[in-house]
Design a binder for these strands. Structure first.
Lengths: 132, 132
DNA sequence: TTTTTGTTCTATCTATAATATAACAAGTAG
DNA sequence: CTACTTGTTATATTATAGATAGAACAAAAA
């Protein structure tokens, strides 16, 4: 699992880590049951503090993407075993809100509905691959 | 134009104002040429500081949603007259990135491509109305 | 037993957000 | 011209979030 952070970015480091871990799960680079690097190891590799990585892991845990197993470390969670948290959870609800805000902003810019749908489909293709 | 803010929200006040002004433009409640309330008047109505509203207006100006005309105040910009800023601008590019991140997170949660597309279409319908 | 794990605690520093007071140039209404 | 309102800028203060730092803990595994 490759994680790169940008110190100059205005996005907080722990959110950058969170986003990239989610992306790795989505792409299948790390499957359910896979053990993530320890907070200390990842912090050392990235050249940042232990607590910054720990915060990223805590957020991922609260959002249901990973589970903590003490000494065993952090492992990728199985979405099928936490359907309540994911299907009808806060994440799905926030996704709907974000999509709505994006559509409104696009329309305020003079954009059309078709353009927005095309942008969504392109993002979808990039995220899910050429298949479906 | 009705604007409501939530002091308890974790979202900054100036971003809440920004989002709601954009939403009002998108819904057609305020059309190009419409004069927004002055920063002092809106700050008084919302019970917040002058500078907080001023920051929201400055962001909206930088993003091309409104234009400043000195004494005349802040007026809603015409998207047709600033196509470079909107069509191929930073906003459109950030929208694509956000859509991509949303799609990746949805897939990491075990969601399907069809589900994401359906969510995007629902957000689109809510933003553009039953028409299109 | 020893080591490694996530977690918690306290502390410090920086940047952002919000407030407050004041002042400015510019345009407009009277 | 005069007086007022506009956005804008400057400075200052307070509060919160982000990041770092050092230390320590219980739990689990080698």
């Amino acid at each position: 699992m490759l994680i790169r952070i940008d110190q100059a970015s205005d996005e907080p480091l722990y959110l950058q880590i969170r986003t990239q871990v989610i992306a790795s799960i989505a792409r299948g680079e790390i499957a359910p049951g896979f053990t993530l690097p320890s907070v200390r190891a990842l912090a050392r590799d990235l050249g940042i503090n232990l607590h910054t990585v720990n915060k990223a892991y805590a957020v991922l845990r609260d959002e249901g993407y990973i589970t903590m197993r003490g000494r065993a470390g952090a492992v990728v969670a199985d979405p099928a075993k936490a359907p309540l948290l994911h299907k009808r959870g806060v994440a799905t609800q926030r996704m709907a809100e974000t999509l709505h805000d994006l559509a409104l902003a696009h329309r305020a810019r003079g954009g059309s509905a078709d353009e927005f749908l095309a942008a969504a489909q392109e993002a979808l293709t990039r995220a899910f691959g050429k298949d479906r």
